[in-house]
């Protein structure tokens, strides 16, 4: 129906996550209409991200060049490692400005249905890190869903013999929220994880 290059563009856009055939079509026609330099900026951005972005050899966060910003930052505490599933989770943790340690990105969680076992995750690399660096605490910061919990449990069992402190992030209520709007599972977990009040 369309010319070959246009159809190819629609097909490629349609493969992006969250983009259906209708949106792909709309984007393609938009790109067709805009000034050439605007469209070229997009292709340059895509080329740059593929050519210049690498994975950090230490923590496997996305990086430009050698080490990622987190690992290159000498003010960060290298004895504290926060293990996350995805580079996007680092952004989430960083926004809190509460954490001044380093990270380790697994790139997924245990999920046999999708064929993801420990070998598909950066688990061996984490072990190597623990072997060499002076790491004293590992914070398991995987998602609080079934797969994330299973991954945390797997890592906890794997790392326990190494003698480092292993912690798991708490589950609970959103700050500034109302108890009455909390779902019963979250509230149940929050009750389970209650702690003494310092007075």
């Amino acid at each position: 129906m369309y010319t070959a290059p246009l159809q190819a563009l629609i097909d490629e856009l349609g493969r992006l996550p969250g983009v259906g055939p209708k949106s792909a079509q709309r984007m393609a026609f938009h790109l067709l209409k805009v000034a050439p330099e605007d469209a070229l900026r997009l292709t340059e951005a895509i080329t740059a991200v593929k050519e210049r972005t690498t994975l950090c050899p230490v923590c496997f966060n996305v990086a430009e060049g050698d080490l990622c910003d987190m690992c290159a930052d000498t003010r960060r505490d290298p004895s504290l490692v926060c293990v996350v599933e995805d580079p996007r989770d680092i952004v989430a943790v960083e926004k809190t400005q509460e954490f001044r340690g380093c990270y380790h990105v697994l790139h997924g969680a245990l999920n046999p249905i999708e064929g993801i076992g420990p070998d598909q995750l950066r688990v061996r690399e984490l072990l190597t890190r623990l072997d060499g660096d002076a790491i004293t605490e590992v914070i398991l910061c995987t998602n609080p869903n079934l797969e994330g919990e299973a991954t945390a449990m797997y890592l906890a069992r794997l790392l326990r013999p190494l003698g480092v402190r292993i912690t798991r992030i708490a589950s609970g209520l959103p700050v500034g929220g109302d108890l009455e709007y909390a779902d019963e599972l979250t509230l149940g977990r929050a009750l389970e994880g209650r702690r003494d009040v310092e007075a």
Partner: peptide, 10 residues
């Protein structure tokens, strides 16, 4: 075995 242990405990 290591992964099966985890799913078993769940």
């Amino acid at each position: 075995e290591a992964t099966l242990d985890v799913w078993d405990s769940r």
